[in-house]
Design a protein around this nucleic acid. Structure first.
Ligand SMILES: NC(=O)c1ccc[n+]([C@@H]2O[C@H](COP(=O)([O-])OP(=O)(O)OC[C@H]3O[C@@H](n4cnc5c(N)ncnc54)[C@H](O)[C@@H]3O)[C@@H](O)[C@H]2O)c1
Ligand SMILES: NC(=O)c1ccc[n+]([C@@H]2O[C@H](COP(=O)([O-])OP(=O)(O)OC[C@H]3O[C@@H](n4cnc5c(N)ncnc54)[C@H](O)[C@@H]3O)[C@@H](O)[C@H]2O)c1
Lengths: 218, 218
DNA sequence: CCATCTTTGTGCACGCGTTCACAAAGACAT
DNA sequence: ATGTCTTTGTGAACGCGTGCACAAAGATGG
C-alpha cells in the first residue's frame, strides 16, 4: 500500500507539516501512525471534499479574445468542468464554432442555463456589460460567478463571485518590485554577481492569496 | 476641495472603516478630522505607494490563445504597464504582429530583457515549457513573474512568482457550490420562491483572496 | 509479548490582522 | 472666542490561522 508522510507532503508543497496534518484531520482523513497516509484514499477524500468527483457544467459569456482562450483551454475539463455553452451578444458570432462548440446568442441564455442545470457562470464581456450579464445569470439560476471584467459585481446573498483581475496581479508584482529597488543599499553586498543559483525548493506562496505585506512607515 | 470620509469609502468597498483608516495611516496619508480625506491627494499617495506612478515594461512569453488575449488587453496600459515585447518559440510566428506588436523569437529573449530593462515577465506557455522559460527569464534579470501555466515554478530567492490558476478559481466556486447544496435542509424555508431581489451593496470579498472556509467536521 | 521507533493527532501559545471604542483634532456656526 | 458636531487616528481587545511540542497510536522486530 503506497503511503506518504505529512513530512514528505509538506516538504513538497513548501508548507509546515503540522498545518498539513491539522488540515487533514478536519477532513477526517485518518492516517496510520508510524506509517503515514494511504495515498489513494487521501486523494479520494480530498477530491470528494473539494467537489472534484462530480462534474460541473459551466457557461462562458463573452466570446472575445479572453472568452475564446478560455473555451480553448483544456485544463478545465481535466478538473471536472464541462463547458456547457458559449454565449455572446454579437449576432455575427452566433453558430460559429469556437473550440468545437457553437456560440449561441444571448437571447438563449436563460434557456441554456435552465436546460443544463448550470450553476457556475464565467463572465468575459467588456466591463460595461458585466453587471447586466451577471443579473441575467443570477436570475436564471446561476449561483457562482467567475468574473474577468474589471468591475465589482453586485449580487444577492447566496451568490458567490470571484473576480480575477490580471492588472491587479501585475500591480502586486510591481509593488514588490518597487520594494526591492528601495532596498538596494542594504542588500547590495549580500549576493555577489547575480548567477541565479538553483534553489530546489518550490518557492512558498505563489498563489493569489492576499499576501501584500503591511505598509509600515519606512 | 473634494473629500471623502473613511465611512463612505468603506461602504463603497464593503470593508470596515476602521481598517481603512488604519491602512491609510500607515501611508502617512493625513486626512482632516471632521472632514475626511482630500480625494486627489489620497489618490496620488496610494498610486505612488503602489508603484502606479512609474510604468513597468513587461514581456509576455508564449503567444498562443491566452498570450494573444493578454497582448490585446488594454487594461494593462491603463494601469501603467507597457508590453515591451511578445516572445514565442514557434518560428512561424516570428515577425507576425499581435495587437500591433511583432512577435519575436525566443532566441531574442535575453537581449530584449536587457535592452528594455524588463523586470516583470508573464509566462503563457504550455506547462512543460514554463520552468525552462522561467529559468531563462530569471537568468536574464527578471525578478517578478506572473505564471499562467499550471505548474509550480522553482525560483531563486528574491524572485517573486504569482501563479494564476483559473481551474482553481473554478474549483473554489464549485467547492462553495457543493456546500450550498448540502445546506438545503436548513435553508429551505428561509427564502421563498427565488426572486433574486436587488441587494445594492457590493458583495464583500470577491477577490482572489484565500477565503476558503475551514472544513470543520459536519 | 515486549521494546523500540516512526508518525499521527492535537492542546497550547504565539503573532498578526481586524474591529471596537474613544479621545483628540479641527471645521463651522454663533 | 466658545461650543457643537463630525471624522480622524490609534490603543486595546478579540479572533483566527500557524507552528511548536508532545503524548498516544500503531507498526515492526526481537
Ligand atoms: N484579454 C485579456 O487578457 C483580459 C485580461 C483581463 C481582463 N480582461 C477583461 O475581460 C473582458 C473581455 O476581454 P476581451 O479581451 O476578451 O474583450 P473582447 O472585446 O475581445 O470580447 C468581448 C466579447 O464580449 C461580447 N459581449 C459584449 N457585450 C456582451 C453582452 N452583453 N452579452 C454577451 N456578450 C457580450 C462581445 O461581443 C465580444 O465578443 C473585458 O472586460 C476585459 O477587461 C481581459
Ligand atoms: N487558454 C486559457 O484560457 C488558459 C487558462 C488557464 C491556463 N492556461 C495555461 O496557459 C498556457 C497557455 O495556454 P494557451 O491556451 O495559450 O496555449 P497555446 O498552446 O495556445 O499557446 C502556447 C504558446 O506557447 C508557445 N510556446 C511553447 N513553448 C514555448 C517556449 N519554450 N518558449 C516560448 N513560447 C513557447 C507556443 O508556440 C504557443 O504559441 C498553458 O500553460 C495553459 O495551461 C490557459
Amino acid at each position: 500500500m503506497p503511503t506518504v508522510s505529512s513530512e514528505e507532503l509538506a516538504a513538497a508543497a513548501g508548507v509546515n507539516s503540522a498545518k498539513l496534518r491539522k488540515d487533514f484531520s478536519y477532513l477526517g482523513s485518518y492516517g496510520t501512525r508510524g506509517v503515514g497516509y494511504d495515498v489513494e484514499y487521501l486523494v479520494y477524500q480530498i477530491s470528494r471534499e473539494l467537489g472534484l468527483t462530480q462534474d460541473w457544467p459551466v457557461v462562458i459569456v463573452g466570446i472575445g479574445n479572453l472568452g475564446a482562450a478560455l473555451a480553448n483551454y483544456g485544463g478545465f475539463a481535466s478538473r471536472g468542468f464541462r463547458v456547457a455553452a458559449l454565449i455572446d451578444a454579437d449576432p455575427a458570432m452566433a453558430g460559429k464554432p469556437v473550440a468545437g462548440i457553437p456560440v449561441q446568442h444571448t437571447d438563449e441564455l436563460e434557456r441554456i442555463i435552465e436546460d443544463n442545470g448550470v450553476s457556475i457562470g464565467v463572465i468575459a464581456t467588456p466591463a460595461g456589460a458585466a453587471q447586466q450579464v451577471c443579473d441575467r445569470l443570477v436570475a436564471a439560476g446561476v449561483t457562482s460567478i467567475l468574473n474577468f471584467a474589471p468591475t465589482v459585481l453586485t449580487v444577492p446573498d447566496g451568490v458567490d463571485v470571484r473576480k480575477v483581475d490580471l492588472s491587479i496581479e501585475l500591480q502586486i508584482l510591481a509593488f514588490h518590485e518597487q520594494r526591492k529597488a528601495g532596498e538596494e543599499s542594504a542588500a547590495a553586498a549580500a549576493d555577489g554577481a547575480a548567477a541565479p543559483a538553483a534553489r530546489r525548493t518550490p518557492s512558498t506562496d505563489q498563489g493569489p492569496d492576499g499576501d501584500v505585506p503591511a505598509v509600515m512607515p519606512a
